[in-house]
Nucleic acid binder design. Structure first.
Length: 424
RNA sequence: GUGAUCGUAGCUCAGUUGGUUAGAGCGCCUGACUGUGACUCAGGAGGUCGCCGGUUCAAAUCCGGUCGGUCACCCCA
């Protein structure tokens, strides 16, 4: 292919019929969130860079090397959002939402990360996520997890696994860190180069290393559960009991640590074998310190982000590409005169019917028009030629049963009724 | 950022040790069929062989670079 204009690396165009799957997912997301009592929030696609540096964490990979940052014409450093949590908290803070009690917010939209693309990973990706603020108890954790799981469940994604873990709080995390250091340090020389580097910086990260050399040490590492403080222990136990009571299947996975700095206590991931190496479709947890660190009140929060591209990949792996059922009407008018009569009726039908009404304006033979109807997966064809015009009728052909019916050409409502699909 | 691998019609791919005008299937258009679709048959359109440079009498084919796709590492949705 000649190197003409192409979509930037790591981005993709979503064309029909794939865009149909997106539309359906998004509409189910809005419906699901609404039923859980969450309201949508929309924030700018770019923000001042400082927000992400403070909100996501200065030493995280996202901030260190994955952000699309640029100077605007006023010399301000701006960044395309690499995630939603910091912007949502910023907006909530800016508009004083926290002084109005607990908030249940959700978002859907694109995020940007400058990474090498691979399966399930893009430079522009789309996320659905929720943020539940103002509740410090495990019920909020359970609610948020239940919401994410409900989406997975409603799609029948049977190969998904919910992994839950606790990474403690200010009291016990330092203790755990210490325990890990003591565990790994004696074997430092035997660890992978990456892990040696991570050891002093962030020993928690060693736990999700995929390197074979690290495996034996990771497996024998102490679980966070062994050093959890009483408060965190209680929170975690209660969460697990709630999940069980709600009939949500989960596994406790002590290797789930999450990469963003702001998490406290509960962390969880929904993973699937259908996604290749990027096996996480949804990740989230509690981040009680985030709002305060952004200069706001001490408000607890839980949330998650779910990758739409990855979710759709899972859905396709389980269900295959969907075959759309026949739906709608193809209006076929033969000749200019017939078109002039048909067009107003088509417009009227588009008001009366819920299903799509297709019409091609080219001068073609009936045969060609029927082929187009077939390609459009129309259920009915409305045929208006010179014979019909003279008789004041229109032929309604059921493209599935191949039955023809003649109905009077008078009112579109009669035609709609003949199609038996008029809108309530 | 690192590594592997691949770039030939809209799509999926052939193309023999470098050798004339680069092929197939699907899709698209037209016709067989004055007005009744998934089948059939016959035609047709569509390609600077990703791009740039090199080797050669000769490059889709060999070499180098570059861009892009894919997969993995890192990290994450």
């Amino acid at each position: 292919m000649p190197s003409k204009l192409t979509a930037p690396r790591g981005t993709q165009d979503i064309l029909p019929p794939q865009s149909g799957a997106w539309l359906e997912l998004e509409s189910r997301i809005h419906d699901l969130a609404r039923r859980f009592g969450y309201a949508e929030i929309r924030t700018p696609v770019f923000e001042g860079t400082e927000l992400f540096v403070r909100g996501v964490g200065e030493t995280t990979d996202i901030v260190e090397k994955e952000m699309y940052t640029f100077l605007d014409k006023g010399e301000r450093s701006m960044t395309l959002r690499p995630e939603f949590t910091a912007p949502v908290m910023r907006a909530a803070l800016e508009h004083n939402l926290f002084s109005q009690g607990p908030q249940r917010l959700y978002y859907v939209g694109p995020i940007f990360r400058y990474e090498r693309p691979q399966k399930g990973r893009y430079r522009q990706a789309h996320q659905f996520g929720v943020e539940c603020t103002g509740f410090s108890g495990p019920e909020a954790d359970a609610e948020v997890i239940a919401l994410a799981w409900e989406l997975v469940r409603s799609y029948g994604l049977t190969d998904a696994t919910l992994n839950v873990n606790s990474i403690g709080d200010d009291v016990c995390r330092p203790r755990y860190r210490q325990a890990l250091l003591e565990h790994f340090r004696p074997h430092a020389a035997e660890l992978s180069a990456d892990s040696q580097r991570r050891l002093e910086k962030n020993p928690l990260r060693l736990l999700d290393s995929k390197d074979e050399r690290d495996r034996p040490f990771v497996e024998s590492a102490p679980a966070f559960a062994s050093v959890l403080c009483d408060a965190c222990r209680e929170h975690d136990d209660a969460l697990q009991a709630l999940l069980s009571a709600c009939g949500i299947p989960f596994v406790v996975n002590s290797r789930i640590v999450r990469g963003l700095d702001y998490y406290t206590r509960t962390v969880f991931e929904i993973t699937s074998s259908a996604l290749g190496a990027q096996s996480t479709v949804c990740g989230g947890g509690r981040y009680d310190g985030l709002v305060k660190s952004l200069g706001g009140p001490d408000v607890p929060a839980v949330g998650f982000a779910l990758g739409l591209e990855r979710f759709l990949m899972m859905a396709e792996a389980v269900h295959g590409a969907r075959v759309a059922p026949r739906d709608g009407v193809q209006a076929i008018a033969l000749g200019a005169q017939a078109r002039a009569v048909a067009l107003p009726m088509v417009m009227e039908l588009r008001r009366l019917l819920r299903a799509p009404v297709f019409m091609d304006f080219d001068d073609r033979k009936l045969l060609a028009h029927l082929k187009i109807a077939d390609r459009n997966k129309a259920r009915y064809a409305l045929i208006l030629g010179s014979d019909e015009l003279a008789a004041g009728t229109v032929v309604v052909r059921d493209l599935e049963t191949r039955e023809d019916r003649r109905v009077p050409l008078g009112r579109a409502a009669d035609v709609a009724a003949a199609l038996g699909e008029s809108r309530a």
